[in-house]
């Protein structure tokens, strides 16, 4: 059994997915901060990577995470129209739509990749989104794709 499959929830002892979360610095990361400072509970399944903008997220990052064995990927940015850089998330929206179709065609369950918008004031929504995403990926079970040497788990 790989290390990946052994990650369990410290309290419930059940398997929790490993989710890579790309959060935009201006909205979603601040939203996550707000969720923290407001002491809102959400599952400890995400590994946050802070990026300047959702438009900064190269689709390759998502593919790399999945092919190396992440159970899921979540990308969150500012709401359309609210981008700090004015249009970064508009470009990202097209890119992610196409990426999701591609992953679905290649046999990744569409629920493994989640895109969403969370603003800096939406701490509660952030917790809600993480809970939804975790539940969806939990229902799918551990990723069967990738991992080095093709040791799919």
């Amino acid at each position: 059994m790989s290390e990946r499959a052994q990650v369990t929830d410290a309290v419930t002892k059940e398997w929790t997915p490993k989710i890579v979360a790309f959060l935009c610095n201006w909205c979603s990361y601040a939203g996550a901060d707000l969720a923290g400072t407001s002491r809102i509970q959400y599952p400890p399944s995400i590994r946050v990577i802070r990026v300047p903008c959702s438009g900064r997220v190269n689709p390759q990052y998502i593919i790399k995470a999945l092919s190396d064995g992440a159970d899921g990927v979540m990308v969150s940015g500012c709401h359309p129209g609210d981008c700090h850089y004015l249009e970064g998330n508009y470009y990202a929206r097209r890119r992610f739509s196409i990426l999701k179709r591609l992953l679905s065609l290649a046999g990744f369950h569409p629920d493994r990749v989640q895109f969403t918008w969370v603003s800096a004031s939406e701490g509660a929504r952030f917790a809600e989104v993480v809970t939804t995403v975790t539940d969806k990926i939990k229902a799918l079970g551990p990723s069967k794709h990738g991992g080095r040497d093709g040791q799919a788990q």
Partner: peptide
């Protein structure tokens, strides 16, 4: 390895 192939083609 599979991960590299997957990453390249996707």
């Amino acid at each position: 390895d599979t991960a590299t192939k997957m990453a390249f083609h996707l």
